Computed example of a mutant assay.
Amino acid sequence: MREDRFEDRDAGGRTLAGAITERAPELVGQSALVLGLPRGGVPVARHVADALDAELDVLVARKIGMPGQPELGIGAVTAGGPALFDHRTLEYFDIDPRRLAPEVDRERAEAERRLHRYRGDRPPPLVRDRSVVVVDDGLATGVTARAALRGIRAQEPARLAFAAPVCAASSIAALAEEADDVWCVLQPADFGAVGAWYKDFRQLSDADVEAALAAADRR
């Protein structure tokens, strides 16, 4: 059993928050924006927002899975942006991205549904000229994080960072093209999967996301 696993996402979020305040203390109290990737990234992001005394909101990006292996992310899409694909993987498996159009449409629709449920009638947060930290519960292939970061970069933040409690070391370099900073607590050589680094990695519901957002609102 791995002794360095996090108890759950809350524990991972508290540890990550401590690491960020040590590495970037200038963000504390500077009206930063923390964006959690639903569902698993939101409870983690809540603790980061608490530590930075920052605004918390959601950033919805959906993975596009490999045909026949949906758990393997070969692309991602946000509610409003174009699909982003890992073209090396597409070439290796000889997949025409046009073949994935139906899944892209489904995942974009799901991203829109989640965004409407979590945000309701609230306007999206202001991004331009702010420091923005995008948070997830882990970084595996990185394609979903890249799509999310690319969408935020287009809104001209002053500084853009990605943070997660555990990251595959091989995926961190790819994010360097999209983010100014990448902060990870664990970078295990034997990464495997995100869930392997949590003792409790239960699937979260929309209600869990809403509870984390409500707790941040009360703060």
Rank of each mutant, 00 (worst) to 15 (best):
L16Q: 04
R14A: 07
R98V: 05
L37H: 02
D50I: 02
F191E: 13
A164M: 05
L213I: 06
G81C: 07
A179V: 01
Q30W: 00
G36K: 08
R113K: 10
P188C: 12
P125G: 08
I172D: 11
G195S: 15
H116P: 06
E55R: 08
G40P: 09
K199Q: 12
A211C: 07
I20P: 04
L72M: 13
I152L: 14
P124F: 06
E107L: 08
S31G: 07
R113G: 01
L115H: 10
W183C: 03
A179Q: 01
L33C: 14
V77I: 02
R159Q: 05
R117A: 10
A216Y: 01
G29S: 08
V132R: 08
V104M: 13
Q203C: 12
V135N: 06
F162N: 01
R106P: 01
A173F: 13
H116V: 15
Y198T: 02
L126T: 11
A164G: 04
T78A: 00
L56S: 11
G41K: 02
A111Q: 05
T21R: 11
D53Q: 09
T78K: 00
L213D: 04
V58S: 00
R23E: 15
E3D: 15
H47L: 05
G18E: 03
R88P: 13
A164C: 04
A54N: 05
D105K: 05
